[in-house]
């Protein structure tokens, strides 16, 4: 079942088109990667989902209902450009934002307390935000985003500005929220973490969707039937050789392409002809697919 469905959404600004008939479906309980270069239209789409702006055409369904004002209580949003009231106390700020997201005062207090303990920020509770380190401020921001237990959590470049340790903490928190059933829309132009975190992705470029689906499927679809073989013997004649080089151990490393055969068949046939030291399929990374697709579109 899909928690969020975007149908043919377009958004125009005075000088340019931000979104051009974009459709996508975010399955409930998934981590959905919204990928694209800077200026592709990711933030425009996110703002539409958050009802900060309205689409010019198209429709959006959230939790099987047309998107409406009540849904903002079920959405948590961590914008790419984010800040806090510097002069206000951590604690007051968390409660304030919790209440704006529809929590009662008591509930906001209770949950803030829990999160402060979880993120080891308890003794910073009554400090002003400006007294906190950047990493701590980021944690506070994350807490504010999830305090009201949103069904849909929208994270726009959540790891920018985090040191590796805090990034790991947040990454684990994201996974644990997913395990509790939260659907996460993860927007980024950096691919390092995408394969590790996301189940589904959607690639947007120049205001158009150019690719979407589950990570597995996309990788399969974009596989180029490339294989890497380290062996002893003569190069088989039935493969399309891409490159060949000797290894330090005196073997040969061969990269080749074979179409219309699965791995088992290839191994069987190779085993008959050469002495195999290692064999693997070269699977494209999402990063590579991203770059290829963007370039493809840009050159078209």
């Amino acid at each position: 079942m899909n928690l969020l469905e975007i149908n043919e959404v377009s958004k125009f600004y005075q000088t340019h088109k931000a979104l051009d008939h974009v459709s996508l479906s975010v399955p409930e309980g998934s981590i959905y990667g919204l990928l694209g270069p800077n200026g592709a239209g990711k933030t425009s789409l996110i703002r539409i989902i958050n009802q900060i702006t309205a689409p010019d055409t198209g429709s959006i369904t959230f939790d099987n209902e047309p998107l409406n004002a009540e849904h903002i209580y079920k959405i948590g949003y961590l914008p790419e450009e984010r800040g806090l009231y510097k002069k206000q106390k951590v604690w007051e700020q968390m409660i304030y934002f919790g209440q704006l997201k529809g929590l009662s005062l008591a509930e906001a207090k209770k949950r803030s307390e829990e999160w402060l303990i979880k993120f080891d920020l308890k003794e910073w509770k009554n400090k002003k935000v400006e007294e906190l380190s950047k990493g701590m401020q980021q944690k506070v921001q994350f807490i504010i985003t999830v305090l009201h237990k949103p069904k849909l959590l929208i994270l726009d470049e959540p790891f920018t500005g985090f040191d590796p340790i805090n990034a790991e903490i947040i990454k684990n928190e994201i996974k644990s929220l997913k395990a509790q059933g939260t659907t996460i829309l993860y927007s980024t132009h950096r691919m390092e973490s995408v394969e590790e975190i996301c189940d589904h992705i959607c690639l947007i470029n120049k205001s158009k969707k150019i690719l979407d689906g589950s990570v597995k499927e996309i990788k399969k679809q974009n596989s180029k039937n490339l294989f890497e073989l380290v062996f002893e013997g003569k190069v088989p004649t039935w493969v399309e050789k891409i490159s060949e080089e000797p290894t330090d151990e005196g073997h040969t490393k061969l990269v080749f392409k074979v179409e219309n055969m699965n791995r088992a068949e290839i191994i069987k046939r190779l085993a008959n002809e050469v002495n195999i030291w290692s064999f693997r399929e070269i699977v494209p990374t999402i990063h590579q697919i991203f770059i290829d697709k963007v370039q493809e579109v840009n050159h078209a």
Binding site: P79, Y85, K86, F97, L100, T145
Partner: peptide
Amino acid sequence: TNRIVEIIISSV
């Protein structure tokens, strides 16, 4: 300029 505003207007 502090970029708080985007967080707030996703709630109000």
